[in-house]
Simulated assay, not measured.
Amino acid sequence: MKKWGFVLLALLLAGCVSEKGVIDKEGYQLDTRHAAQAAYPRIKVLVIHYTADDFDVSLATLTDKQVSAHYLIPANPPLHRGKPRIWQLVPEQELAWHAGPSFWRGATRINDTSIGIELENRGWRNTAAGKQFAPFAPAQITALIPLVKDILTRYNIAPQNVVAHADIAPQRKDDPGPLFPWQALAAQGIGAWPDAARVAFYLNGRSAYEPVETASLLDLLARYGYDVNPQMTPAQQKRVIMAFQMHFRPALWNGVADAESQAIAEALLEKYGQAG
């Protein structure tokens, strides 16, 4: 035994056997045995988009020089060996240009800290009744769920940080719109959703659409994470409320401050805490 100990020591000194936590590279070594405590994951947010175009045009756009996303999911993903195929356009460790000017829970430059998933979907069109959004195919959502679960597990992304593009850029964006199945995904452990009993508690017997003060609702939304500031015009305030309603109260997303929207915001703050 003593002989083998001398042999191992000789090999170690000669560089033939690596120490645990020491990695040999070409021309140098890395000692990884002293990890800093003040280290934080880069990826903290998952952003869901729709492409507002067909798959071929979407793929061409997202692989051009102007915009990009980490993943693109067709409306009806082709099956290969029984599994839906998803297109990865940018490695997760690299930054993609999908969020644009954005804000969420005190942070800007959301591209720097997020993964973006684009869903092939035509978006909305104007009708006599206003904006009409296109539904999402069940096969597309079926493909999305395991991908998102993998991402959330890898980066420990908090439920409140699984967001719509409209949540982080309400003045510019509507996607993925009110037909995206946020509630169904929350039942699968994906994203935030308020507890119905707590919404009823905060509603406290009021009619769901009873008007409330816009400033009161916006204060709650700012605390939850939306970009709200005193200089906003009434039209800009409405856009923030619409984004919130499309995500958490899609039955009516008119941008009007009402009792149910207020109760939902209060229930979300109670469950997930306020930004910062």
Rank of each mutant, 00 (worst) to 15 (best):
H165R: 15
Q274M: 12
A275H: 09
K149T: 10
D258E: 15
L46H: 08
L9G: 09
S68C: 02
L9Y: 01
K25I: 06
A134D: 11
W182G: 04
Q262F: 14
H70Y: 05
Q262I: 03
A265C: 07
Q29L: 09
Q66M: 13
A137S: 09
K173G: 02
V17I: 15
R85N: 01
L11M: 11
V162K: 02
P91W: 11
P91A: 15
A267F: 11
W104D: 08
L13V: 05
P101S: 15
V162Y: 02
W87D: 08
P178F: 00
G100V: 13
E19W: 02
A197K: 10
V17W: 06
A263W: 00
A186N: 06
L62C: 10
Y209K: 06
K83S: 12
D64C: 03
Q188G: 04
A36K: 03
Q274G: 15
D31P: 07
L13R: 06
N204E: 07
Y71E: 11
A164N: 12
A39H: 05
Q37N: 02
H49K: 06
F136C: 10
F136P: 11
T113Y: 13
A263I: 01
Y155F: 14
L185C: 01
I151Y: 10
D54A: 08
F201S: 02
Q236A: 14
C16L: 15
P78L: 01
A208F: 07
T233Q: 14
P170S: 12
F103V: 06
A38S: 12
T214F: 09
P211E: 12
P91L: 14
Q132V: 05
T214N: 10
K20C: 00
K149C: 08
D54N: 14
R81S: 09
A99W: 00
G205R: 01
G15N: 12
L217E: 09
A222M: 12
H247D: 14
P135L: 05
L30H: 01
